[in-house]
Amino acid sequence: MRHWLLRRTLQAALTLAVAVVLLFLLTHLLPGDPLAREGAGRPLTSVQREALQARYGLDRPLLEQLGTFVGGLARGDLGVSIEYGRPVVGLLAERLPATALLGGTVLVLNFTVGLWLGVRQAVRKGSAEDRWLTTLSLAGYATPSFWLGLVLAGIVGVRWHLLPPAGMRDPLIAGGTLAAAADVLRHLVLPALTLSLVSIAGTMRYQRNAMLETLRLPYIVTARAKGLSERQVIWRHGWRNALFPVLTLFGLWLPILVSGSVFVETVFAWPGLGSLAAAAVNGRDYPLLMGASVLVATIVIVASLLSDVAYAFLDPRVRLS
């Protein structure tokens, strides 16, 4: 077990290293010019351009730039954003909490409501409820998040004035911490709902299938034959086992959440990493784009490592081997 954990961690580190190199190369392969927005609308003179290129190291060979980036990464320095003229680490740190709040909310909704609905569907397989939930979840899955976001913001936010359609805080709000928290919550509803609606379908589907597989197994018959209540049979004996495949999903699932949040944060002007990354792509802001990408890659790799560890911990067959 300890041996396995060590190997799995090393594997994660190696994955991250490969990801960093690939991201760097892909970022620099993007067509476009990181300096295009400099000069406030006037074309840069060749002297200005050369000075800026030297300042951001863009005149060096690509491999050397990669070396510089990796060296900085090791020291926790991700360079200076071309667009903002500030250290990338600071920019990311500012934006991380908003994304963590949005992503965390969506994740919690997925792993509570999504799993619960999936189990219900499996238990009531073939019923009208099952068929409706399948239809609805597939519709949600097929809906582009930016479109749904725009529609919700337009109808609920702009037309009905029920919830704020953009931003995270109302700058004019008065009152203490509680009022501020309530304000953030109100802003959170629409982006979180948008991302949840389009992502929960996958979780439900996955949980439904895993549960159907499990409910077919002989130990479920044993549990019933013992005289356990239906609730014990389904949740204790069934779901506990049907959770394993879904746990692995957690690792695979984060990237979808992150890329989804790029659109949703942009639509709702949510001040998170997603909208920052979108701006960085538009401006070809290499240092900022690299910083955001590496951060996301790290989160995804760590999450998948954690889900494997959780799996191993929950399954005695793995834990005790």
Partner: peptide, 13 residues
Amino acid sequence: MIFQDPMTSLNPV
């Protein structure tokens, strides 16, 4: 009741 295959008839977790 006792079933045929004690491996799959016992809950592994």
